[in-house]
Amino acid sequence: LVRYRTISKIPQITLNFVDLKGDPFLASPTSDREIIAPKIKERTHNVTEKVTQVLSLGADVLPEYKLQAPRIHRWTILHYSPFKAVWDWLILLLVIYTAVFTPYSAAFLLKETEEGPPATECGYACQPLAVVDLIVDIMFIVDILINFRTTYVNANEEVVSHPGRIAVHYFKGWFLIDMVAAIPFDLLIFGSGSEELIGLLKTARLLRLVRVARKLDRYSEYGAAVLFLLMCTFALIAHWLACIWYAIGNMEQPHMDSRIGWLHNLGDQIGKPYNSSGLGGPSIKDKYVTALYFTFSSLTSVGFGNVSPNTNSEKIFSICVMLIGSLMYASIFGNVSAIIQRLYSGTARYHTQMLRVREFIRFHQIPNPLRQRLEEYFQHAWSYTNGIDMNAVLKGFPECLQADICLHLNRSLLQHCKPFRGATKGCLRALAMKFKTTHAPPGDTLVHAGDLLTALYFISRGSIEILRGDVVVAILGKNDIFGEPLNLYARPGKSNGDVRALTYCDLHKIHR
């Protein structure tokens, strides 16, 4: 019993810090008490220290592992850092350059016999395009090294910054494609005289377009951006097909006994025919423009016929181009109408809503002055909100995010209106959640004399007048207030005048 009563005193000691020596009952000389009392004092002292730490809000209350900052290894790049964003855009520009100039170089340097010394005699450094290609190869190699040090988000939505895990993730992902696209074939085969082989191998750079397509997928929600990307894709495919079309004609031209190829026909049409040795002929500019003209006309199913396939190889390629053109029509131009419709969806919704308003007016036989006010209010409210119901949009977000959005939407009023000066951010967040926005066209009466005042109004834009009878008592403008002081009276009061809008007004109100 003594032991039980001794232990039962522990909660009292913990909360009230009572010393055991003052209790005459606990001072009985028993061996059990002498053993338990020192333990009680020690526990009391420890609990006292913990309570003191909690009340003082000291940093040592938290466990040590929670006080440590997340460790980022040296030379690790955050995937959302500004440097990584700028670097990704730079790589994107280099990939676009590669997609345009690599097929052009591979096709127009394929057994090209233009006048001038061969590239091997001039030297590697004197070729501007080769120098640019070398810079692109170096940048792609540097990009691989950067990807080995860039964080990523795993399946659990955690940012991984450990170098080993980053390397394994990159090896399992895009490393092989990036490595093949970054191989400097110019340096590996330079001086061997195989410019045709170098041009063909350099087309491996186009593998990076797969990554670019995935990154550009984030802009699919913007109709104008999608339309622009589709047109660029169409032009890029036409450019690639033009390079292939020229390569076919250029390879067949020296081996044909009869002059029936499209390059021969082009030379005869523009007065620059090929001679018996295969030299001469149109310039590279004429060849490229004509090839691009043929691919565009074939892809769009126009086909004027002034550039036509004559050999079997050219006919087979033309059939493939027609098939590609039909697929592009289905996948690209078939979506253009939907994209344009999405661009004008706001206008369509406006006309639909206006039609419903006019049908309501016609069905209920609203008189002319009231009908005009109804239409003007709808037009003004639509121009202010673009038909978007803010309350319906915010309803799907958590309250903390709703408060931040409301604070942002009402920031101008909260910053410049005098009653809100000096208020804490928590108070402003709470008030912003209570605001209701209303609009009024010129001549609209917001409050009639004798109406119950259940709200306090803040003028965000425009001006109003307060009338008693036919006498203008006051004219209020931006950041002015009218209405009933909230919670100042037990019952809502009545208006002693009319409140009429002089201009288009936007008002925020808080109800009782």
Results as ranks from 00 to 15, higher is better:
Y65R: 10
Y65M: 13
L67V: 05
Q68C: 01
Q68F: 13
Q68L: 12
A69W: 12
A69K: 14
P70I: 05
P70G: 14
R71C: 09
R71D: 07
I72K: 15
I72G: 15
R74E: 04
W75A: 07
T76S: 04
T76A: 05
I77V: 07
I77K: 01
L78I: 06
H79E: 05
F83L: 09
F83N: 05
F83M: 06
V86F: 12
W87P: 01
D88L: 01
W89H: 01
L90H: 03
L90D: 01
I91A: 01
L92R: 02
L92I: 05
L93R: 01
L93P: 01
I96P: 01
Y97L: 01
Y97P: 01
Y97Q: 01
Y97R: 01
T98F: 01
A99V: 01
V100A: 01
V100R: 01
F101H: 04
T102M: 08
T102G: 03
T102P: 01
P103C: 01
Y104P: 01
Y104K: 01
S105A: 08
A107M: 03
A107I: 01
A107F: 01
F108E: 01
F108R: 01
L110E: 15
L110N: 15
K111A: 08
E112N: 04
E112D: 11
T113I: 07
T113E: 10
T113R: 08
E114T: 15
E115T: 14
E115P: 14
E115M: 04
G116D: 04
P118M: 11
P118R: 15
A119G: 14
A119Q: 01
C122A: 01
C122F: 01
A125T: 12
A125N: 04
C126E: 01
C126G: 01
Q127K: 01
Q127E: 04
P128Y: 05
P128E: 03
P128V: 15
P128D: 01
P128C: 15
L129V: 04
L129G: 12
L129N: 05
A130W: 11
V136Q: 01
V136E: 01
V136N: 15
D137Q: 11
D137P: 01
I138N: 03
M139R: 01
F140A: 01
I141G: 07
V142R: 01
I144W: 01
I144T: 05
I144Q: 01
I146Q: 01
I146F: 05
I146A: 04
E158W: 01
E158A: 13
G164Q: 11
R165N: 05
R165C: 11
R165A: 14
I166P: 01
V168E: 05
V168G: 10
H169D: 04
G173M: 03
W174N: 04
F175I: 01
I177A: 10
I177L: 04
D178V: 01
V180A: 13
V180H: 01
A181I: 01
A182Q: 07
I183D: 01
I183W: 05
P184R: 05
F185N: 04
D186Q: 10
L187D: 12
L187E: 11
I189C: 11
G191P: 11
S192T: 08
S194G: 15
E196M: 11
I198E: 04
L200I: 05
L201R: 01
K202E: 01
A204P: 05
V210Q: 13
R211W: 01
V212W: 13
V212Y: 12
R214F: 01
R214C: 04
K215G: 04
L216H: 04
L216P: 01
R218C: 08
Y219D: 01
Y219S: 05
S220H: 09
G223A: 08
A224M: 11
V226G: 11
L230A: 05
M231I: 09
C232L: 08
C232Q: 01
T233S: 14
F234G: 01
A235G: 11
L236R: 01
W240E: 01
W240P: 01
C243L: 01
C243Y: 01
C243M: 01
C243I: 01
W245A: 04
W245N: 01
Y246F: 01
A247Q: 01
I248W: 01
G249H: 01
G249E: 01
G249W: 03
Q253M: 14
Q253T: 11
P254Y: 14
M256T: 14
S258E: 11
I260L: 10
I260W: 01
I260M: 10
G261W: 01
G261D: 03
G261H: 01
L263K: 02
L263E: 03
N265C: 03
G267P: 01
I270M: 01
I270Y: 03
G271P: 03
K272T: 01
Y274N: 01
Y274E: 01
Y274T: 01
S277Y: 01
G278L: 01
P282V: 01
S283N: 10
K285C: 08
D286L: 01
D286G: 01
K287P: 01
K287F: 08
Y288S: 01
A291N: 01
L292V: 01
Y293F: 11
F294V: 01
F294G: 01
T295M: 15
T295V: 13
T295H: 01
S297E: 01
S297K: 01
S298T: 14
T300G: 04
G303Q: 01
G305M: 01
N306D: 01
V307Q: 01
S308T: 09
T311E: 01
S313L: 13
V321A: 01
V321L: 13
L323A: 05
I324Y: 03
G325K: 01
L327C: 03
M328Q: 01
Y329G: 04
F333H: 06
G334I: 03
V336C: 01
V336Y: 04
S337K: 04
A338Y: 09
A338F: 15
I340W: 09
R342G: 10
Y344K: 03
Y344H: 12
G346C: 13
T347W: 14
Y350A: 01
Y350M: 04
H351I: 03
H351C: 03
V357E: 02
R358L: 03
R358N: 07
E359C: 01
F360W: 01
I361F: 01
I361V: 12
R362L: 03
I366V: 06
P367W: 01
L370T: 01
L370E: 01
L370K: 01
Q372T: 13
R373N: 04
R373P: 01
L374Y: 01
E376K: 15
Y377C: 11
Y377E: 15
Q379E: 07
Q379C: 05
Q379A: 08
W382Y: 15
W382I: 03
S383V: 04
Y384A: 11
Y384I: 15
T385C: 01
T385S: 03
N386A: 07
I388G: 03
N391T: 06
A392R: 10
V393Q: 03
L394C: 03
L394E: 01
L394G: 01
F397I: 06
P398A: 01
P398V: 02
Q402Y: 03
A403L: 01
I405Q: 01
C406G: 07
H408P: 01
H408E: 06
H408N: 03
N410D: 01
N410E: 02
N410A: 05
L413T: 09
H416L: 03
H416D: 13
H416N: 09
H416S: 10
H416P: 01
H416E: 14
C417Y: 12
P419D: 05
F420K: 01
G422I: 06
A423K: 02
T424Y: 03
T424H: 09
T424L: 02
G426H: 02
C427T: 10
L428V: 07
R429M: 01
K434A: 08
K434F: 03
F435G: 02
T438Y: 10
T438M: 13
H439T: 14
A440V: 12
P441K: 08
P442S: 05
G443V: 02
G443K: 03
D444I: 08
T445E: 07
T445K: 04
T445I: 08
L446E: 01
